[in-house]
Design a protein around this nucleic acid. Structure first.
Lengths: 224, 224
DNA sequence: TAGATTGTTAATCGATTAACAATC
DNA sequence: TAGATTGTTAATCGATTAACAATC
């Protein structure tokens, strides 16, 4: 049963690598805007306070090859990374939940650079339906299945309160969505064919808190 | 003889453990609200699709001890986790940048449960200063140093565009802030005494994209 | 050329999981 | 008691870092 896949024989990238790659892409655009054509792993590492070896290793997963002494051709590296991430063209997405976080994401202009194109926003609340948020008219949940299937939308973003999240996920799944970006703190039940990525702001806050606490239990006081 | 702080000698928790702990806390409140007094690692693992052994190991870092056959006393575990995270009382924080993301965070009511209490919001834009967002009057940057030092605010949240982020960080640092929660995609330069936690939404999107892409290169089609 | 940088294999480090005795 | 669950030590797995040859 493990007849080799045609070309995905390459070792798959570790998740930490995948998470770092968008920041590399950002640096590349910056570096290019500064008029450069080449960039080395050392350059990238410096801007992000990483070690060059790690950048090099990460890059190797994207399939890029560089030139000793020069580094990587920025344009090629950008292409390579965008291919790796599947960000060659922005995927259409819908967002469900037009509260504060939802409208923040709607307004996040640079998603287009990040392979995401939000094409519609939905809300259950009749008071919100019909309103325009960041230039986008809020649609009712009833309109979701038809729009998703007509436009072949692959990604659904959930920014509703946690009580409503599962219900929304069910609607998205039966509308044929393939991936869910879940900003509610709820663990969703979905068929295994659907990819779910959960964001949890609290985990970052926990890291900050523990680091700050550790500093203090070391007897320090925050003064220098 | 080692009646020193019992915690400081313990092995420190891995970062992945720290990131999972807030989700445990959430489950505990849920479970308690359902009228339970005890919870086992197995119960927690089930709700979060983790393995019981991992939950048990994570818990051990908080210093809790359970009872064989029963699990953990929920109330004790909550206390233990809150101590571990330093969330026994909410830390005061200020937020700089009242754009979409900033006002979303301002509106995030449940931060109070998560050890964070936003006491003031600042913005550079004179059009925003004086306006009220989510019940909080937006202050000008000039007022920041005095407020931070008067209230002994320890945490600053940065939700400004990336060009402005470093400048804001500098103001926060010289006002005496001890930790920065950075939502801009900029790597900040700060003295080592200041703890910085950077959030990057794109990294989650990258993981989603790659997982969805991988599915397709396996020859699947998203249908079941 | 000499030296910087790549790309790869091997070594190390850190996190997760397994095994199992203790115990309620 | 018997059995479920804890807590800890050891084994495994995965990610990072080191070492180094290749090369421009």
């Amino acid at each position: 049963m493990d007849d080799e896949k045609s070309y995905s024989v390459d070792k798959i990238a570790p998740q930490p690598t995948i998470r770092r790659i968008p920041s590399y892409l950002r640096i590349l655009y910056e570096y290019q805007a500064e008029g450069n054509q080449w960039i080395s792993a050392t350059d990238i590492a410096e801007r992000l306070s990483l070690k060059p070896i790690q950048v090099r290793k990460d890059m190797s997963f994207t399939g890029i090859t560089g030139k000793p002494k020069k580094g990587f051709l920025i344009q090629d590296l950008i292409t390579s990374i965008r291919n790796f991430l599947g960000w060659t063209r922005a995927s259409d997405a819908v967002i469900v939940g037009t509260g504060a976080l939802g409208s923040a994401l709607l307004g996040y202009k640079s998603f287009s650079h990040q392979g995401l194109n939000i094409v519609a926003a939905f809300d259950k609340d009749p008071d919100r339906v019909g309103k325009t948020i960041r230039g986008m008219k809020v649609l009712s949940m009833e309109e979701l299945p038809e729009l998703v299937s007509r436009m072949h939308v692959r990604i659904g973003i959930i920014t509703v309160p946690s009580e409503a999240a599962q219900e929304v996920a069910d609607v998205l799944v039966s509308a044929g969505i393939e991936g869910i970006w879940n900003f509610s703190p709820t663990k969703l039940k979905t068929p295994s064919s659907v990819v779910v990525q959960k964001e949890d702001l609290c985990s970052g806050l926990a890291v900050l808190s523990v680091k700050m606490g550790a500093r203090h239990s070391n007897g320090e006081d925050g003064r220098d």
